[in-house]
Computed example of a mutant assay.
Amino acid sequence: MQDSAMLEGKVAIVTGAGGGIGREIAIAMALAGAKVVINDIGASLGGEGQSAGPAEQTRQIIEQRGGAAVINGDSVADWTSAQRIVQAALDAFGRVDIVVNNAGILRDTIFHKMTPEDWLAVVNVHLNGSFFVSRAAAEHFRAQESGAYVHMTSTSGLVGNFGQANYSAAKLGIAALSKSIALDMQRYNVRSNCVAPFAWSRMTSAIPAETPDQKARVAKLQQMTPDKNAPLAVYLASDAAKGITGQIFAARHNEIFLMSQSRPIRSAHRGEGWTPALIAEHGMPALKPSLMPLDRSQDVFSWDPV
């Protein structure tokens, strides 16, 4: 199958498509034959303000390349407006086949200084937004007995990172949401998968680059352009990915990873049961060799992108 025909006849909603990874996914889906709803409110990285400019730029790029797209400026972080996002696809193109939950903001702060407002703002956009838009599309997917969700998770949640309790919790929650959707909607031929993208974009531009090590890390990240994530998203949204559901992938420059999901890795058993003292004396020493290290995303993905 040609890349230009993989999404022929399909309608895709891409949230946060005014720039970065979302823009590249929207463009790639249009080039693959999909009609695209470009959802973006044009807010700052922290979620403040609103502008139609970024979404308009994405639309112009798609139309210049022969694709079809419309703009929607509703927020994903509200149930009523999320329904309007899905309705925009129905009004413009008569159906919806693909939802890409990409919209996001950042409010990075060390945990003991994080405000409730910073927590709620990030969780509302990433996790609640992914639920709201997915749920709004679910009735249509169920009725037509087809549909594909592609959710953006992050290794900040899957592995860990400093100063991102709000973002990490939301992104790990998205992985669980995706699995639940995959289980609940399999009977309707609806698929749900996650992508943990690696890219230098507005979402990573706040990474400090002061020390030599930090500067070297940023230089590596800058090689990983947002468009490197688009092919995997297009594939997962296409009929070529039939049977691929409930999975978590990562796209890092020219590498694609299948990520593990939580499963038991070691056990300790006592027929008589446990007391706190027995756990300290026997249980934990048995489990300790398999304890997970306190590592971060960059500790796990420590090699240079190739």
Rank of each mutant, 00 (worst) to 15 (best):
A175T: 15
S154V: 04
E145G: 00
T155R: 08
K171S: 05
S168L: 06
S146K: 09
S156W: 04
Y167S: 03
E145M: 07
G163S: 14
L172A: 13
L158H: 14
I181L: 15
I181R: 10
R142N: 05
V150N: 09
G163W: 03
A169W: 09
E145P: 00
K171L: 04
Q164I: 03
V159K: 02
F141H: 06
G160F: 00
Q144G: 02
Q164G: 09
N161R: 05
G147S: 02
S146P: 00
L177S: 12
N166P: 05
K179E: 15
G160K: 04
F141R: 07
L172M: 13
N161C: 08
I181G: 07
N161Y: 02
A169N: 10
K179L: 13
N161K: 04
L158R: 09
A176Q: 11
L172H: 07
L177P: 09
I181K: 10
S168M: 05
S168P: 08
G173D: 06
V159D: 01
S154N: 03
Q144T: 01
Q164W: 05
T155F: 05
H151N: 15
Q144D: 03
S178A: 15
G157R: 10
V150G: 12
I181S: 09
L172G: 12
T155N: 14
S180H: 12
M152P: 01
G147M: 01
G160T: 01
L177I: 12
Q164C: 11
G160W: 01
G163Q: 12
I181E: 08
T153H: 10
T155A: 11
A148Y: 00
A143S: 12
S168W: 04
A170N: 06
A148V: 00
S178F: 07
Y167L: 08
S180I: 08
G157C: 12
I181W: 14
S180Y: 05
A143Y: 02
L172P: 00
Q144A: 06
S168A: 15
A165N: 00
L172T: 12
N166H: 13
G173S: 07
N161G: 04
G160I: 01
N161L: 08
T153A: 15
K171G: 06
T155K: 10
R142D: 08
G157A: 10
A170D: 04
A170V: 03
S168R: 06
K179W: 10
R142H: 08
